[in-house]
Design a protein around this nucleic acid. Structure first.
Lengths: 342, 342
DNA sequence: TTTCGACGTGAATACGTATTCTAAGAATAC
DNA sequence: GTATTCTTAGAATACGTATTCACGTCGAAA
């Protein structure tokens, strides 16, 4: 049998509201009584019931995270792992917990929306890689439910969103190679319909214009295996570039493998820059230059805004935030002669 | 203004309990009325309030996951990423959600315990890599709170736990090398105080006895960098083995790097077997033989038992379950001559 | 001494649902 | 035709907390 405020009240010879007032730090309570109640609470090890509390108050103390992924999709995706890690870090010590859910398809996504929001299970929602055309977004807006997008594919300014600046990322990756003296630079992207590919290619196009007439873009599926196969085509292509920007570290790993099995060297035969700056980058011999996504900053800003929204404070402007990326230079993009000069 | 059962009742000209009965599928309700209520519910897009529901019923619909990790600790830890992925997969479509929390130290861990359990925020708890001597465990047991341990360091049979069979894992890794003809096998472990190191070493000891008099065990910190350094010592040691069992894929990566920079080859100069069977294993040239942890099976069993416990069914025996591991053989442990024979 | 705030506290109520209790009517049995 | 189930649905209540309302007391101002 759980101990409630009523029990505490009876023992301390006060009324239940008084116990509640002590708990909420209401100043209008006699110090004598306050200390007596506090003592009874501590000796009986009382804890308020979160369920009753969240029914009575507005706040449930939960922030929902909804991700659309295939089964096991988190396992080898450093982006999601970092994201969740950063979210949990952010929430440590704050009066919110993370309610994380995965959906497999659109249908379950809609029912999850009902389950989480319309039933008021969570106070706010983080949506990842959501497509803004998504019906859910409109319903969320119509219901005036607090939510924040991580990634804002359509660049919609009406929606609270924090986005990684993928165009910028693509540009600085390319500009770095230009600065290193490369004049024929290619881009190995993921599936063309993905936003991340489109945006990074856009940045690549902006920067590559300076040194080459014709852009060189290849597409492949995600993952090291697919990238390895495409890398073979690239190496044999008449358009073979001197340097390659690769969409993520795993795919870059595939390129490295292909180069290695063709007895070619990085960066001499092919310079490489990739994205995400995951632990993989240090595992490549000489290191893999990579554009870090600053996920912590994305999460910090997203959650800060979301919490403000939930707590009815004015969310900090601007409505749409784009977080810059940072390049970590390692051996894969620095020609040997430069290294030798040091 | 939210729409409630009372509103629905008024519109449909029935009482609130009737609406509740329709919702719970109570058979003792006139079909005519039932359909009328259902229609009103759907036209007004009614959704029951999860908070009120969980106050009234026993179930909150949340399962807590508590992990003790440093800040950002999830980022490069494939074990935790897989774990969370598997948990979320398991819960898809089930009437539970995952409430994931991270703690940085013991103090916050205890307060988190209060926050999650004593306040009845979650229905049950998953504890990972917890030390059974932990005070929390005793409190959980005393409070008869449903919980399950993933990993059971003390082998306590009283506690519901699902554990990866690390002794078995260490043994099959070693036996595989023995079967491949190696006669001088070493083990590169993590910090000696960690359970995972102790258990896998134990398995190594059992299996290595068959072929060598003296076990060869080294310790290093976790991570590729620390392992790389220790690998240097191992390679230069007079006890240098022909084959090395390495505690996890990241550490094995460090060993590979060291071998590569010493112009030595895998498996010719040093055969390798590691643990976790993560995506890294396919990134090593020739592939890295690794013992897979079967995290899905661990999670499935743990959650299945936990849910039964929550729902007051008898948990399936045995109380302590040990999930076997499986070896994925790749190039790093197969001497070249064998490959050539195929 | 009377009157009026201010203060501190308990009584009552609300949050939205599920369940128990009760009553009215229909159906069955004698 | 009355008595007894059986069915169905409404009334009342409980879950545990926070808040509003009302009331008594005390001190200060008149």
């Amino acid at each position: 049998m759980r101990i409630t405020q009523a029990d505490i009240a009876k023992i301390a010879n006060v009324s239940q509201p008084t116990v509640s007032r002590v708990l909420s730090g209401d100043s209008r309570v006699e110090p004598t009584i306050r200390s007596r109640v506090l003592e009874v609470m501590s000796t009986h090890n009382y804890r308020p019931d979160a369920r009753a509390r969240s029914l009575r108050q507005k706040r449930a103390g939960l922030i929902g995270l909804v991700m659309k992924r295939p089964k096991g999709g988190l396992t080898d995706d450093p982006f999601f792992a970092s994201l969740m890690s950063a979210i949990m870090d952010f929430l440590v010590g704050k009066p919110y917990h993370l309610c994380a859910d995965m959906t497999l398809d659109e249908t379950s996504q809609v029912s999850l929306y009902d389950e989480l929001l319309r039933s008021r299970r969570v106070d706010g929602l983080i949506l990842v890689e959501s497509e803004a055309k998504d019906e859910r977004i409109h319903r969320l807006q119509a219901d005036q439910f607090p939510f924040v997008l991580i990634g804002n594919p359509l660049g919609n300014e009406d929606i609270l969103s924090v986005d990684n600046d993928n165009v910028h990322a693509g540009r600085i990756a390319t500009e770095h190679l230009v600065a290193q003296g490369f004049r024929k630079i290619g881009f190995l992207a993921g599936p063309p319909e993905t936003t991340v590919s489109r945006d990074r290619i856009e940045g690549y196009l902006q920067a590559s214009r300076a040194v080459q007439e014709r852009p060189l873009v290849w597409h492949s599926d995600f993952g090291a295996n697919a990238a390895r196969e495409t890398a073979r085509q690239i190496l044999e292509s008449p358009d073979r570039p001197e340097a390659l920007v690769v969409l993520d570290d795993f795919m870059a790993m595939g390129v490295v493998q292909r180069l290695r099995s063709a007895a070619q060297r990085v960066p001499d035969d092919m310079a490489l820059v990739s994205f995400n700056d995951s632990a993989l980058c240090q595992l490549v011999e000489g290191g893999l230059t990579s554009v870090g996504l600053n996920i912590e900053s994305i999460v910090y800003n997203a959650l800060d805004r979301l919490v403000r929204l939930i707590e009815d404070e004015a969310p900090s402007a601007p409505h749409r935030l784009v977080v810059p990326c940072e390049l970590s230079v390692r051996g894969s993009s620095v020609p040997r002669r430069e290294v030798a000069q040091r």
